[in-house]
Design a binder for these strands. Sequence first.
DNA 1: CCCCAGGCTTTTC
DNA 2: GAAAAGCATGGG
Length: 312
Amino acid sequence: MKYQYEIKTESLINISQSLFSGQSFLWEKGNDSTPYYSSIIKSIPIILCEISEHEFEIYSTQNSVDGVPLPEFINRYFTLDINSELAFPENFSRLYPELWQRLAPYFSLRIMRQDPFETMISFMCAQGIGMHLIRKQVTMLRESYGEARSVLYRSKEVVLHHFPTPEKLAAADPALLSRCTNNNRVRARNIILAAQCVAEGRMDFNALCDPALPLSELRNTLCQNGGIGYKIADCIALFSLGRFDAFPIDTHVKQYLGEWFNSATARRPLSPTTYFALDKEARTFLNPDLAGYAGHLLFHCWRKEVKGLRTF
DNA sequence: CCCCAGGCTTTTC
DNA sequence: GAAAAGCATGGG
């Protein structure tokens, strides 16, 4: 590794928890005595190694990403500019004292600003299946269609794979690609069609990044693609378009809205109608501007503390 | 064989 | 319009 940094943060950050909280299917955990996490971001291999909750190391072959110095880039990538406690209104701890206590450890969990195309394809793989299967699909996509690149980490060779480019997936054979999607042909077809949209410039993520774009409009645009409904559209917005107000509602979110917030709506089947009703409800007890950020912390807390699920 | 998993699409009322 | 059923696959 040519460049190495040690970063100290003011805010709590738990790298391993963040990278495997379920939002990131784009990072891989290395099997080493000291766990490390690797990914390729904008063609640059990056390895992260956690030292403590306030310190971690970055290894890379370059010292900047798109002209932004690496430490600064990582800071932004892990949304350290966002104070996640502000995702909850001031009276939240008073209204939900028990929940507030359970939630405390999860403030060190960060949402990441990931690449929109990679996020879109990853979450298209996430319909009605378990998290380890989602990760398996994304890994297979990377290894089957992404360019390999090996880097040195502590004098060991580590092979990383790029996430496939839109062009590569756009040209893929549906039958072959479906081996990466649990043999689901429909999903494979939708992924290829979406990749073609991006490759041909019919879908422009730069335009969709505009913070002035109303969330409903953004959601409708994304939903025009087959295989993308409201939930996945909200995930793309939250995890890759900087829309921390987007509040994806899945089976787990629906469950905790019923249990923790006593929502009667949450006990009905999740139709578009209930989806919008829950979206609106959630904004009454969460900070609307950061509802999605709050939702993600609650989501992870629910999964781990109540359901006893492991993320990886 | 049951149910569930970070849903979406089509049919039916 | 909105609710209900159908879909598709692997794992517990």
